[in-house]
Design a protein around this nucleic acid. Structure first.
Lengths: 213, 213
DNA sequence: AGTAACTTACAATGCTGTCAGTAAGTAGCA
DNA sequence: TGCTACTTACTGACAGCATTGTAAGTTACT
């Protein structure tokens, strides 16, 4: 009754076509946000109709999720080989990323817009960003631990806070830089702040704000 | 030909009604973003139709601009008297603000969502956020200068970067905190990062990342 | 022969903004 | 004080557009 061949594998060019769509979607969502970025505009960029995109991805929500994963992959491929850098190398990697980001405002904007949009009600990207920040914070914490071990220091009390802070400055600076690139040096400022936070975590000094008039 | 009485002043209750609308709009835009937050939902909160809101504000764009200004005012009124704190007091004020923000996630979300959304194409809030960051950076820079003068230090090289970084961490931490409040302590972490950055600006130590394997 | 990769057409919805009308207030004046 | 003229503060209806998703059909691969 049931024939055996129920599903055919996708055609060879299809994977490339999907990647084209993902790149176009990243551009449109980056420029206009998820809610304000229509499928039709994405379709036009790749020479299709919006129905063609829905054929590949099923719904706009699922497209967003795949776009976010795609951005991750292309990031990892582009910047470094495969491995996750550890210890001091992770911090250097973050700073290099900030310098690389200065050359790709489109990606930066997509990331800034979509991450903030994800905190709104029932946004399909929310889970992705929750996971992403959790993973990244974990990597930074691990890097701190590795540095301490290497130097024979005990683990400082504030690693968790320092990890969150480092990711936070990078993101926050991106927004300010996108708003006015003439007023904010993205990379240099990121490097400065990452160093400041790492130093205070590894070798704390007393707060300058605590008491006194 | 032309009679003299051309425009009547608004009725006494009108100002209060407008404020109600602004508060409702802040809530809706905060929850759903500007593009995704319909006028009808705002209208419902204050017991009106969306046409009534357009009567008061003319267009959705102008409503957003007024919402942003309204948030500023209510912030200034609520937190402190009138004056802009200077020197060390500004930093203390920023940290207090971070603690206060932990009690008002709605406002924080509105701010995070709308500021990121403002970097998208032709967003009506963009100018507001450009100005706001410029002004805030200026205030932080002035506070650094005041602190240096008081202590007889010369102005450090990195004040501009430190100022941008401090605002950036605060914003970035808000996003992470909104995504998962169980994993990020907004206020304590903000305080830690602000101190770290201020210390490095006022009394720099060499970068731990510069050379060596 | 069957399915992937589309297109065209369309249904269904949601949104902003306009328009005409209504009730209620206010100003000017007898 | 009361009448008239005009304005504010709305409502309800609707035009007009944009947008997502579906369904049916076509082409071309395998």
């Amino acid at each position: 009754m049931a024939t055996t061949r129920r599903q055919l594998p996708p055609r060879p060019e299809t994977a490339a076509r999907r990647r084209e769509i993902l790149a176009a979607a990243l551009e449109t969502f980056g420029a206009k946000g998820y809610n304000n970025g229509p499928l039709a505009e994405i379709a036009e960029q790749v020479g299709m109709t919006h129905a063609g995109i829905l054929h590949h991805f099923g719904s706009k929500d699922r497209l967003l999720v795949e776009v976010l994963r795609y951005r991750d992959e292309s990031d990892v491929e582009g910047i470094e080989g495969q491995h996750i850098p550890d210890g001091i190398e992770l911090f250097r990697h973050l700073i290099r990323t900030a310098f690389a980001n200065e050359q790709r405002p489109g990606i930066v904007q997509a990331y800034a817009v979509l991450s903030a949009e994800s905190v709104t009600n029932a946004n399909p990207g929310r889970e992705y960003f929750e996971d992403r920040y959790r993973v990244l914070r974990g990597e930074v914490v691990a890097a701190f631990r590795a540095m301490c071990a290497e130097r024979g220091l005990e683990e400082p009390a504030q690693v968790d806070r320092a990890a969150a802070s480092i990711l936070a400055v990078m993101d926050g600076l991106q927004v300010q830089w996108l708003l006015d690139p003439t007023q904010v040096e993205l990379a240099e400022t990121s490097a400065f702040a990452i160093e400041a936070i790492a130093l205070q975590a590894l070798d704390p000094r007393p707060s300058p704000f605590d008491q006194g008039s």
